[in-house]
């Protein structure tokens, strides 16, 4: 971090030195403290190279991460749109759970399904939820889904709470739960093609 030749070390050399300063001046030259920074073009060049390399690495990392975040946003948006199209339910709040265990791009989109005698769409997870496993890239604003299941109201998506699985079975999404009494029919949505 060399500085221009006129730079001084915040006045260390200006005021008379106390006994500590005088004592330190008796050290051998290679380790003696200096009052002024000595100009070294070589050192400055090395420091500049290091700084530029660090700047490039940080810039690449930042831009990559920002675009990655945008990509995830688009994917989640496509998940929601796909859920709405397949179920035919214009639900406002569709919950998406990303695969934080295996870090794949498989997302599980869950939303409330209408129930007899209940008005409005309800809070997320307050009613029986229809979940679809989204896989693959976004094509025309939609993602592929070949698997789905139901989750009872106020339950989180776990193997023991899933029931009524439909489509191609996926080992990562086993259905071990039972349909609760009085739950709406667990038939696959009309738009689901498996």
């Amino acid at each position: 971090m060399s500085a221009p030749a006129e730079q001084r070390s915040a006045g260390a050399e200006e005021a008379p030195q106390d006994w500590l300063g005088r004592m330190l001046q008796r050290l051998p030259e290679p380790i003696r403290p200096r009052a002024r920074d000595r100009e070294s073009h070589r050192r400055r060049r090395v420091e500049m190279i290091v700084l530029v390399v660090v700047a490039i690495v940080l810039a690449v990392g930042t831009i990559y991460d920002a675009t990655r975040a945008v990509g995830i946003d688009y994917r989640l948006s496509a998940d929601i749109e796909t859920w709405r199209q397949i179920t035919g339910i214009p639900l406002k709040e569709v919950s998406i759970e990303q695969d934080m265990k295996h870090f794949t791009k498989h997302d599980v989109a869950c939303g409330n399904i209408p129930e007899a005698g209940k008005h409005g769409e309800g809070k997320p997870g307050a009613r029986t939820q229809l979940c679809l496993v989204m896989i693959g890239p976004i094509v025309k604003g939609r993602r592929e889904t070949h698997t789905g299941f139901f989750v009872p109201p106020k339950e989180s998506d776990q193997s023991v709470t899933r029931y009524g699985c439909f489509g191609s079975p996926m080992t990562r999404y086993p259905c071990e739960g039972a349909k609760p009494a009085g739950a709406p029919p667990d038939t696959p949505p009309k738009g689901f093609e498996g």
């Binding site: 500085a3 700047a55 930042t62 831009i63 946003d73």
Partner: peptide, 27 residues
């Protein structure tokens, strides 16, 4: 007077701001 420090801090802040802007491009 080592102005590299100011430029480095501003660069880091610039990168932080770039990273913050990703929701702007989200659908």
């Amino acid at each position: 007077r080592d102005r590299r420090l100011l430029y480095a801090i501003l660069a880091v802040q610039g990168l932080f701001i770039i990273h913050q802007t990703s929701p702007m491009f989200a659908p």
